[in-house]
């Protein structure tokens, strides 16, 4: 059984969403929290240097948010393409 065009489209939409969210994941953890951390430390969030705060706190909040967005978005996609579980 070959996947129908609608199923193919569902998969492409899923892969695009994953790529977008993983791009944010990559930027926040490696670029903002590590590569740019020394530079970002000149700015502050409250009393904490920004690069340091992202590395030890902010990145984890973003990870949680990314998974939540993915789960919610996939609920919509699953229904739109009628592949959800009853």
């Amino acid at each position: 059984m070959k996947p129908t065009p609608s199923i193919r489209e569902y998969w492409r939409a899923n892969v695009r969403l994953i790529a977008l969210l993983l791009a944010v994941w990559f930027l926040v953890s490696y670029v903002v929290s590590i590569i740019l951390a020394p530079w970002l430390n000149q700015f502050r969030l409250g009393g904490a240097p920004l690069g340091f705060w992202f590395a030890q706190q902010g990145s984890i909040y973003v990870f949680i948010l990314l998974i939540w967005i993915y789960a919610r978005w996939m609920d919509t996609l699953d229904r739109k393409y009628d592949v959800h579980e009853e």
Binding site: I18, L21, L22, I34, A55, Q56, S59, I67
Partner: peptide, 18 residues
Amino acid sequence: GAIYLMGWTGGYVLLALL
């Protein structure tokens, strides 16, 4: 110490999405 804080949490994004 961020290597452990991020390293042991960021993997869940990969688990959930991939």
